[in-house]
Design a protein around this nucleic acid. Structure first.
Length: 347
DNA sequence: TCTTCAATAT
DNA sequence: CATATTGAAG
């Protein structure tokens, strides 16, 4: 009996491993486009793939797939990089170009699934695609900087929204006559699309807001919004620091890079995530900061202070001691704005 | 108060 | 289209 059980388990694991492998390969294809900018990334994934292949026969219980994205990104150069790339759904096989929305990865068979968890998840799932647009979106409607204020009438689907404390009567009504447009929030899906578009256009420095918007195909999205976002993206992206302490040493060979990519991993959660799950000791729990995970190629240094974007290239935690720095990043000479040739598009 | 982020202004 | 400035939110 036991044997049988073990066998099953084994098979299962093997299968999972296979899926994982596929996912990795897919990821690699995607990054390939960026190989110039993300050489390390590519390399990393490649290594991961190899490692994985090697591991297949073995049953490693390393990751519990319970948690979707979230948490830790352990990035080493070589080993256990894996999970980070795991955000993929198993629906992989999607074409690389039109990566249509996310998966639903609720593989929740979990008996004890919290309502809260559900809430959280649905929270971001809902905000997906569209921000909280009141509803005023007509396809044809193009920007009109006035109306659309209204009350924050949420969709039916949204009414669950736990935010907004029902505290005292003081809630922030945005109802003021503000002339300013309602602030859009770039959900992770949105940002994802943004990144995707960026990729196809060849990187943040050559992509143009309009093109990006078109590629994103999100209705209601305006050029200005994209522009603004792009601006921010570029700002964060271009090496924030060059204060590389040590070594002015020969920088690591050829990579010229500059583009980092932030890739959203977890959305803003309502604030608290499922209690402390204490899955393992691994809770690094960067208190409330983990908003977007970042994926970067060269080591794009950490963004200024505590920003929401974390570079994925975190120094791996050395069990117990977290050294502040530890990574050297090659600062590329900012891919110079020069030649921002955007004359692409040659058929 | 200082920072971040998106909207607007140039 | 790129940047700079503004103003809200945290």
């Amino acid at each position: 009996m036991i044997k049988k059980l073990g066998n099953m388990e084994y098979n299962q694991k093997r299968e999972r491993c296979g899926q994982y492998l596929e996912a990795l390969e897919e990821e690699r294809r995607k990054i390939h486009v960026f190989q110039r900018e993300l050489p390390l990334c590519l390399d990393l994934v490649t290594q991961a793939i190899e490692a994985c292949k090697r591991e297949i026969p073995e049953t490693t219980t390393e990751n519990v797939y319970g948690q979707p994205e979230c948490s830790e990104q352990t990035t080493g150069e070589c080993g256990p990089v894996l999970e980070q790339f795991l955000t993929i759904k198993d629906s992989s096989t999607s074409n690389e170009e039109e990566d249509e929305e996310f998966e639903d990865e609720h593989g929740n068979h979990d008996p004890d699934k919290d309502p809260e968890d559900d809430n959280m998840k649905s929270d971001w799932l809902k905000s997906v695609q569209l921000w909280n647009q009141p509803e005023a979106l007509l396809p044809k409607e193009e920007r009109s900087p006035q109306e659309m204020m209204e009350t924050v009438k949420r969709d039916e689907s949204m009414r669950k929204d736990p935010m907004m404390n029902g505290g005292e009567g003081r809630k922030r009504e945005a109802e003021k006559d503000e002339r300013r447009k309602q602030r859009r929030c770039w959900s992770s899906q949105l940002h994802r699309r943004f990144l995707n578009a960026l990729q196809h256009l060849g990187g943040p420095h050559v992509a143009t807001p309009k093109q990006i918007r078109e590629l994103m195909k999100v209705d209601g999205l305006t050029n200005d919004e994209v522009k603004s976002h792009l601006q921010k993206y570029r700002l964060h992206t271009r090496r924030p620091s060059q204060t590389v302490p040590s070594n002015g040493n020969s920088q690591t060979q050829h990579f010229v890079v500059v583009g980092g990519l932030w890739v959203p991993q977890s959305e803003y959660s309502t604030g608290k995530i499922t209690g402390g799950a204490t899955t393992s000791g691994t809770t690094t729990t960067t208190t409330t900061t983990g908003i977007y995970g970042a994926m970067a190629a060269p080591p794009p240094p950490q963004w200024p202070s505590h920003s929401n974007f974390r570079s994925s290239v975190i120094v791996e935690e050395g069990s117990g001691s977290h050294s502040e720095e530890g990574m050297v990043r090659c600062s590329s000479p900012a891919m110079s704005s020069s030649t921002r040739n955007r004359y692409v598009k040659k058929s």
